[in-house]
Amino acid sequence: MGKIFFYAVLALVVVSGLIFAPEHAGLAIHPMDQFVVQPLFGDGHIAWYTPTNATLWMGLAILATVALMVMGSSRRSIVPGRAQSVAELAYGFVYKMVEDVAGKDAVKFFPYIMTLFMFIVMANVLGLLPTSFATTSHIAVTAVLALLVFVTVTVVGFVKNGAGFLGLFWVSSAPLALRPILAIIELISYFVRPVSHSIRLGGNIMAGHAVLKVFAGFAGALGLFSFLPIFAITAVYALEVLVAFIQAYVFTILTCVYLKDALHPSH
């Protein structure tokens, strides 16, 4: 019974697609167009200083951060209001993460990690607004974020521990014969960190937004039966809201883990 119903609906969808499809739209789906970097003014060449849509949405991420963290906490109430509660929640969440994962002596890096978290979470959420531009979907952006973490962590590791930081690669708990092999593996995994760190964030955001665009293209092509992809868009959108926060969290907690390795390199 369920199967017959399913096939009936499928047939209806296909037929309606054929009958009601607007002739000019067809299946013109360009899911990657939303990621194009364009100048805000004019249509010329993009130099390094040109204000682009990336500039605009990064600026909006700054404004959103300021609105939440500065204006939200401006009343300094003992009993917080809504905005102040959220600001304190974000503060406490990241602070506890730094303290628990990276250790008490990592607390001086807290503003730096908080900066990364606030930028990523704001950019991810703002990127979900319709017709917006998701800055964190670009590998150029996430790679810079990941490389900043990588360079910071490596420098901190050598400054804090000197040559002892190389102990991170020398697994002293393993049998002596295995240690050189493990050292090579550890070294490779260390240098792969910024790659996975950046592609994880950029790939997730890009894939989610592309899927939304694909379904939106279906909705345009299906005419009367466009409610089906619209339901799918709703579901994927809900998932993307979750992903926006989870990816910010994952990026931040990995930063904390790397920082812990730099501060306490012994296994």
């Binding site: 990657m32 167009d33 990621f35 194009v36 970097v37 993009i46 130099a47 390094w48 200083y49 040109t50 682009t52 990336a54 500039t55 990064m58 800055t135 979907s137 670009h138 590998i139 150029a140 952006v141 810079v144 974020l145 950029g202 890009m206």
Partner: peptide
């Protein structure tokens, strides 16, 4: 993939 359009990289990195 606009993500692989290297001509926009310096712009994005600067503003980031």
């Amino acid at each position: 993939m606009p993500q692989l359009d290297f001509s926009t990289f310096s712009n994005q990195i600067f503003w980031l």
